[in-house]
Design a protein around this nucleic acid. Structure first.
Ligand SMILES: [Mn+2]
Ligand SMILES: [Mn+2]
Ligand SMILES: [Zn+2]
Ligand SMILES: [Zn+2]
Lengths: 156, 156
DNA sequence: TCCTTGTTGCAAGTTCATTGCAAATACCAT
DNA sequence: ATGGTATTTGCAATGAACTTGCAACAAGGA
């Protein structure tokens, strides 16, 4: 399936199966749905793994979608602002990854140290711990990050 | 107290109250106790907060200790290898911080989003959770990172 | 004090990410 | 469909954290 085909110069492309309200979300804040934003969103949709800016850039290059790496960064910034994308800064990766929010709740990740596979962890075990920490430190806890690393089933 | 005074060109300096076995630990691996390493270690000892390479550099500059930023990085690398220092990569800081290990056990941190205060959390609530994750994901879990952010008592 | 070898400073290089600006383009009004 | 305008893009430059190459320096055992 050729991605280029799917991109029209105007409006929403059905082949890409983008959430229909995404262009409206963009325009509601004075922004525009461009072909590059469509291409990035479509890539995020069909990629289950969180992807880095460079991976988005490389993948779109392969698919003959003309886009600059700077534009990828700026696109991710916008999508983050609109709450459509989550930015992950996994430990010791030294780069950011992004995943479509798509109604995902607060969750954490585990990454395989060998192949890099990243899997969502649907549980968050820290609700009670947070209260305990607030008591012990007198901080007001706003947020937390939690990641696990290990070996995935394939790499063991 | 002038740090410069405390630094002799050879051997261990008592004023700095360095762990006496530290120079030996260094020499045991074919390394040398230099004046820059003494200065960095002394700074780590008297600083309770985890410090970044740039903070170490700036602080030593102020104290008229001649040291290059590159040397700070290389020193931290060595001290990490020897297990004398822990490297922290706190979320969204975009840089590494270091703290003396000094027998500290595995622990986590909370950082104030306003003033940057970092406090050790002595508990680790993740032992049981790790087992659950291994069951659910079929990963073998090697490690985890966990940090909290919030407002410290001063900044509330 | 000498000699060997580890260490340092300086400069240059990497990597990930951001910024300035002119050209291109989305899209609303006509 | 056309035009006007504010947004977006590409390119080049910049920034921040960190690493590497190499010659000069110095630690510390002989
Ligand atoms: Mn996820
Ligand atoms: Mn600590
Ligand atoms: Zn959580
Ligand atoms: Zn832990």
């Amino acid at each position: 399936m050729n991605l280029q085909q799917g991109i029209t110069h105007k409006g929403l492309n059905l082949l890409l199966k983008l959430e229909p309200n995404i262009p409206k979300d963009l325009r509601a804040t004075g922004r525009r749905m461009t072909r590059t934003r469509q291409a990035v969103l479509a890539l995020l949709q069909r990629t289950r793994q969180p992807v880095s800016a460079n991976e988005i850039f490389d993948q779109l290059q392969e698919e003959k979608v003309a886009i600059d790496l700077v534009t990828v960064y700026r696109t991710m910034h916008v999508l983050k602002e609109l709450g459509m994308v989550l930015q992950l800064d996994l430990h010791q990766e030294g780069l950011s990854r992004y995943e479509l929010k798509e109604g995902r709740e607060h969750h954490h990740h585990i990454r395989c140290q060998i192949c890099g596979l990243i899997v969502d962890l649907l549980l968050c075990p820290l609700k009670k711990v947070t209260k305990l920490i607030e008591q012990q430190t007198q901080f007001i806890v706003d947020d937390h990050t939690l990641e696990f690393t290990g070996l995935c089933p394939q790499c063991q």
